[in-house]
Nucleic acid binder design. Structure first.
Length: 471
RNA sequence: GCUCCCUUCGUCUAGUGGUCAGGACACCGGCCUCUCACGCCGGUAACAGGAGUUCGAUCCUCCUAGGGAGCGCCA
């Protein structure tokens, strides 16, 4: 049988990293086994489902490259089918109408809680004949005895007792079907062989198996993967920072870095840390996923991100960096070529946002010197070296890295100074900070005109300092 | 409250009835070096607790503690 998995989010928010990870696992499982991966939108909650949310989910899936072979399928388009099944269950006596009032249910619940029992429906309407024309819900007639055994691919064997379960509502008063019914019907109709989802659904599984069996069907395989926690061990939420997949894109994370990070959360293959997509598909095995929840660690994600930035084709990184430059008000299509900037900065940034920030000086004069850098390097002792550097640079007829490097070496030699004594003031003068790519590449990319202009500015700056201390 | 699930360095994890309990991120040293970064070398750091089984338990069993999920006319 061909493997078929699905990702079935409810469109009530953004695609968050936890959802993205279960989607990734499902996708990997399908790809590994040459199967199909389906995207299904569980939008039966008409109050909370929104079109924006659907778009956000689709956008997130696309960005991550988790392409689906079928879908998106919408549950709201399938109400007829669900009703057909509900009707069948009613006719077979496996479901029944219930008109218990909210008050009665509340009272029942309250009494059970007081007696320290698990709150659940008491089957009051099971034997009653309720007119189909009057307001009612439909409940599934859950077996009273026996066990349900789930052989979970991640959890192993989990046993549930039917006497712990109750008769759940499968159709609301307004005629709409509920989650536990729709999942069962959809997974069945779509031929899903492996249900991979968050472990918050583990407790729903026996109910769904019961419905499935009452329809005369065999349950699919299940794999309940643990959730993702925040740095502090609490359930991941907005206060931990970014939870939306698209937020990571805004923060300059590469999709392959996020995927690599997510696949290693709760899963591993020996000591391997770097997993390009093809490796993941080859090596991933859903049954190797850990049972315990794991905490999201942004530092490690950034490390992976830096790894991918560092090792990727500069042209691609430049393309991805471009919008982040735009955010800073820089037109990335002017000189120097963004690809050259990327090549120079590739090992120096953990994110595209950071790369944009540390690369702005290539395109525009900086506002102010970094205070400590100026204090340390733009001092009176640096005046003479800077002035000589300016002269040397001005007379240079080739503005190329080798020639620029030689110029710095020559000036240091002439003054009998270590190279750093010349290069650092020069760097601060040209970039405004104490850190940048190699001084030769930096000067080259900034360009002659801007370099000379900024050196003059630095000389003025030092002159002013000297004047001030003299008076 | 009841049912189900989980527990190895701060974090992600490997691991076996006998290991100096391994790797990665982070952190701390050092090297490289015009700065930063990269890279390289080294270091700190963990089997939740208690019983039992066993010649021997991180590993098997039970209990406790802690964490999580579910118990909706939400999904």
């Amino acid at each position: 049988m061909t493997v078929k998995t699905r990702f079935a989010p409810s469109p009530t928010g953004y695609l968050h990293v936890g959802g993205a990870r279960t989607a990734l696992f499902s996708w990997l499982h399908a790809r590994k086994h040459g199967g199909k991966f389906v995207l299904r939108i569980e939008d039966t909650d008409l109050q909370r489902s929104t079109a924006e949310s659907i778009n956000a989910i689709l956008e997130g899936m696309t960005w991550l490259g988790l392409e689906y072979d079928d879908g998106p399928l919408y549950q709201t388009h399938r109400f007829e089918r669900y009703n057909e099944i509900i009707q069948r269950l009613l006719e077979d006596g496996l479901a029944y109408r219930c008109d218990c009032s909210q008050e009665r249910l509340d009272r029942l619940r309250e009494g059970q809680m007081q007696r320290k029992e698990k709150p659940r429906y008491d089957g009051h309407c099971r034997g009653r004949k309720i007119d189909a024309g009057s307001p009612h819900v439909v409940r599934f007639c859950n077996p009273d005895t026996g066990n349900i055994i789930v052989n979970d691919l991640v959890r192993g064997k989990v046993v549930f007792h039917n006497n712990e379960l109750d008769d759940l509502v499968i159709r609301r008063t307004d005629g709409s079907p509920t989650y536990n019914l729709t999942v069962v019907v959809d997974d069945l109709d779509m031929g899903i062989t492996t249900v991979i989802r968050g472990d918050d659904h583990l407790n729903n599984t026996p109910r769904q198996i019961n419905i499935l069996q009452s329809l005369g069907q065999e349950p699919p395989e299940y794999a309940h993967v643990p959730m993702i926690l925040g740095d502090d061990g609490a359930r991941l939420s907005k206060r931990h920072g970014a939870v939306s997949v698209m937020e990571y894109r805004r923060q300059g994370i590469l999709p392959e870095a996020l995927l690599n990070y997510l696949v290693r959360l709760g899963w591993s293959h020996g000591d391997q840390e770097i997993f390009p997509i093809d490796d993941m598909i080859e090596l991933f095995d859903i049954s190797d996923v850990n049972r315990a929840a794991s905490s999201f660690n942004t530092d490690k994600l950034l490390w992976l991100n830096q790894h991918y930035i560092k090792n990727d084709d500069p042209a691609r990184i430049a393309r991805l960096l471009s919008p982040h430059m735009g955010e800073l008000g820089i037109d990335p299509s002017v000189d120097p070529p963004l690809v050259d900037v990327v090549a120079a900065q590739q090992e120096r940034a953990q994110s595209l946002v950071e790369m944009a920030q540390i690369s702005a000086f290539f395109y525009q004069d900086f506002e102010e010197y970094d205070e400590t850098a100026a204090k340390k390097h733009l001092r009176p002792v640096a005046y003479d070296p800077l002035q000589r550097m300016r002269a040397a640079l001005e007379s240079l007829d080739r503005w190329e890295p080798e020639a620029l490097h030689q110029a710095v070496v020559d000036v240091s030699g002439a003054l009998d100074l270590k190279m750093g004594k010349v290069a650092q003031p020069l760097r601060v003068a040209v970039v405004g900070r104490a850190a940048s790519p190699g001084i030769d590449v930096t000067l080259h990319l900034v360009g002659r005109e801007a370099c000379l202009r900024r050196i003059d500015r630095a000389l003025d700056f030092i002159q002013k300092r000297m004047d001030e201390s003299a008076s």
